[in-house]
């Protein structure tokens, strides 16, 4: 299991996945943020996405490369 990262101890450092406007705000205010270049997994194919999720949950596959 990955190391747990406390949230309330100081200003958060943020990984933003999705609406860029939220990362823009943090960047403009000088808080640490990284924007992920996200796009739908499996090319947006719902059937494949479900399959990937099930594989990930079963621990049989590391599908991070699909993103």
């Amino acid at each position: 299991m990955a190391e747990k990262r406390d949230l309330l101890g100081g200003p958060p450092a943020t990984i933003n996945v999705g609406l860029e406007v939220f990362a823009d705000t943090l960047q403009e205010l000088g808080f640490p943020v990284v924007q992920v270049d996200w796009r739908p997994s499996a090319g947006g194919d719902h059937r494949l996405t479900d399959l990937l999720s099930r594989l990930e949950q079963s621990g049989d596959s590391n599908a991070e490369g699909t993103n």
Binding site: R5, L7, T14, I15, N16, G18, P32, V34
Partner: peptide
């Protein structure tokens, strides 16, 4: 950003 402690997902 190794010190990241939050993912904001939208």
């Amino acid at each position: 950003l190794p010190q990241a402690n939050l993912a904001m997902i939208s």
